[in-house]
């Protein structure tokens, strides 16, 4: 028998999917995802230890870890925080503003990468191309 905060403002009480079965299933999903992440992390470590690490491969594995992390975040928010059981209005008021992160991440990492490119171009080891001033003609007036 469930007891809830009641007020005329609350139209209905979402079924918090009664049993603890779903909670434990989510726990196992999160554990398996974490173990997969760790396995990929160790794989990256071993690729790095090798003679000629394949950077594209490492980047691919890092991308996979990011996707696994997003899956974990989805399970925590949707099941543990019960956002998945709430009405659509509440879900949207939280999720839509967070979409700003998509551009936020893209723009800033792009900017950082651009700094690296510029720094490597002008870091002093490669001299900045100097424009040689045109030789003055003899007798020319200043």
């Amino acid at each position: 028998m469930a007891a809830h905060y009641s007020s005329p403002e609350i139209t209905f009480h979402p079924e918090h999917t009664g049993t603890t079965k779903r909670i434990w299933r989510t726990f196992w999903v999160l554990s398996v995802l974490t173990i997969l992440e760790l396995a990929i992390g160790l794989l990256i470590y071993n690729i790095h230890k090798g003679e000629n690490p394949n950077h594209t491969l490492v980047l691919g594995f890092k991308g996979m870890v990011c996707i696994l992390t997003l899956a974990k975040a989805y399970y925590i928010v949707s099941v543990f925080m019960h956002l998945g059981d709430e009405v659509r209005n509440l879900i949207m008021t939280i999720v839509v503003p967070l979409c700003l992160f998509i551009w936020f991440i893209a723009a800033f990492l792009w900017d950082g990468n651009s700094w690296k490119t510029l720094r490597n171009r002008y870091n002093g080891t490669t001299p900045i191309e100097k424009v040689v001033p045109a030789a003055k003609e003899k007798g020319a007036k200043d």
Binding site: Y5, S7, P8, E9, T11, V87, N89, L90
Partner: peptide, 13 residues
């Protein structure tokens, strides 16, 4: 009618 008043449009306190 979630937005016509009298109830929380988010169905939460």
């Amino acid at each position: 009618k979630w937005w016509s008043g009298g109830r929380s449009p988010f169905n939460a306190s």
